[in-house]
């Protein structure tokens, strides 16, 4: 292989390295969490969406679903709304026939969401998977998607 070809090959390899380094970062998976006393073990993405849109009001075992949300502007909320609800982070969902927004409790950190879900039986929330501890149960994991 001539020196010219070698230089070209090295240039190509360098370009590939630069390109691979500049591909979008992968976001951390999101975990949908519920109280450990909740008998539900798994949920589908559409069911979670249906809950946050206010279409599902009660768990299959009967108790009321209590939604926990992150504040507008939180990256976690942005990803949850975009990938689960197919909506912008500040979109509101309304109870049909009313201008009353579907009620959810705002918590301002993963830890606060986990504490609330751990304390309130009918609660459901979303956090970064890395933040999850044994005080809550994970019922759905939104796998990594590129930013």
């Amino acid at each position: 292989m001539s020196g010219k070809h070698l230089h070209r090959l090295m240039g190509l390899l360098f370009a590939i390295m630069v390109w691979s380094d500049s591909t979008p970062a992968w976001a951390e998976p999101l975990a949908i969490i519920v109280n450990t006393n909740n008998p539900v073990t798994t949920l589908q993405k559409t069911t979670v969406a249906s809950m946050y849109r206010g279409e599902e009001l009660h768990w299959s075992h009967g108790s009321r679903i209590k939604l926990v949300n992150r504040e507008i502007g939180s990256p976690v909320r942005e990803r949850f709304y975009e990938q689960i609800l197919n909506a912008k982070a500040d979109q509101q969902f309304f109870r049909p026939g009313t201008p009353v927004a579907v009620q959810s409790l705002i918590q301002r950190s993963d830890e606060a969401v986990i504490r609330f879900v751990a304390a309130i039986e009918g609660a459901i929330g979303y956090v970064n998977l890395a933040s999850v501890n044994d005080k809550v149960k994970v019922v759905f994991i939104l796998q990594e998607e590129s930013d």
Binding site: K66, Q103, L105, F116, A123
Partner: peptide, 10 residues
């Protein structure tokens, strides 16, 4: 506190 928050919000 979480129970009270839950109660108030709902």
């Amino acid at each position: 506190q979480n129970s009270i928050l839950d109660d108030i919000s709902q």
